[in-house]
Design a protein around this nucleic acid. Sequence first.
DNA 1: AGATAACGTGAATGATAATTCACGAGTTGC
DNA 2: GCAACTCGTGAATTATCATTCACGTTATCT
Lengths: 199, 199
Amino acid sequence: MQRLMEAGIEEFAEYGLDRAAMSRIADRAKVSVGVIYKYYEDKDDFFLACVQHSLKLLENAMEQVIVMEGNLENCIENLVHTLIREAKEHPAYYVLYNEITSGSCKKYAKELAKQIESSASKVYEELFRKAQEEGRMAYQGDSKMMAFFFDNLLMMLQFSFSCQYYKERMKIFCGDEVEHHPEEMGEVFIGFVKTVLGV
Amino acid sequence: MQRLMEAGIEEFAEYGLDRAAMSRIADRAKVSVGVIYKYYEDKDDFFLACVQHSLKLLENAMEQVIVMEGNLENCIENLVHTLIREAKEHPAYYVLYNEITSGSCKKYAKELAKQIESSASKVYEELFRKAQEEGRMAYQGDSKMMAFFFDNLLMMLQFSFSCQYYKERMKIFCGDEVEHHPEEMGEVFIGFVKTVLGV
DNA sequence: AGATAACGTGAATGATAATTCACGAGTTGC
DNA sequence: GCAACTCGTGAATTATCATTCACGTTATCT
């Protein structure tokens, strides 16, 4: 049931796992609570399904960008632009992503991390390893580390355009206007990364 | 009451705001629940006090490093080393910090962000502005942005040595050993930042 | 010592919200 | 038409805490 999952994602993003109410989710989806329990074991199970679904959608959006062979520079530019656009367009997905890093999801941390981060880590590492080999990158350290730092920056960027706290934080660092000019932030970010790469 | 607050910090770090139980906190502190309500309005009030207290301790640890005038390079090295050490030594403080970025603290996001991020943002911006003026830094973009990206990296580094999910994530990116060799990670991180700065 | 106040206690209360289940309503097959 | 079955309903049940408060216990003062 599509409607149900969308309702769940909205509710969980708005209230977090613990404060989300199953009855409110049912209302949002215009079904009765019972239905949720026909499809899912319990609240946790449903939450994980919502998270899974969100991440799948994010992955889809990213895949097209990443696959794009060729120019490292273009690839990064595309990546950053897509990321910011997605974060502004579907903040709920990213809020859920942030939610799983919090205390209420401790139980699932390991499994979820493996599931979510494995592919990105491989892709980025490969990207930078190649760039190093071909001498297109000044930074000569471990490409795994490079991938880690790069993804750290991307993650923070996503959160900064979707999660309440990180939004406020970005405004403090960069000024109130930045919120409404995501493209500018994107450009500066790309410039920053290029400096590191030495392109 | 010192013991009470320590118990609170541990409990909130372990379970998150919503799943923490006041009765368990009382047990940990070896007092009865009633006592907590003699000192604090309600659970939220107590939680905020714990967060406040954690952040104060972190600030204290950082202040000494930041104040240290002179060499930008040394300053950054010190900063990174201190940060990693603190994150490993007092993970609970950082877990609480991460907790306030999650859904359960939405209400307080704006206020907390202002309180926590304002000083760091000023310090870093100033640091980089000076470095630019004195020609010790290759990156010539907006120093505010620079400060933002830099703090993003630091934040992720802190979380990566304290919060469950981020720990798992780091292991996926960098290998299982990294957890037990934080110094190495620190060195690589410093090298990475220096590349950006062009020192 | 006795009075008074300050401090602490933890069982009782109440609210919230997850989960269940006895019951329709609609659908399919014969 | 009528079983048998699927799908959905939402009031009732239940568990979990946050919060309160009537009652001890200890400390202070005279």
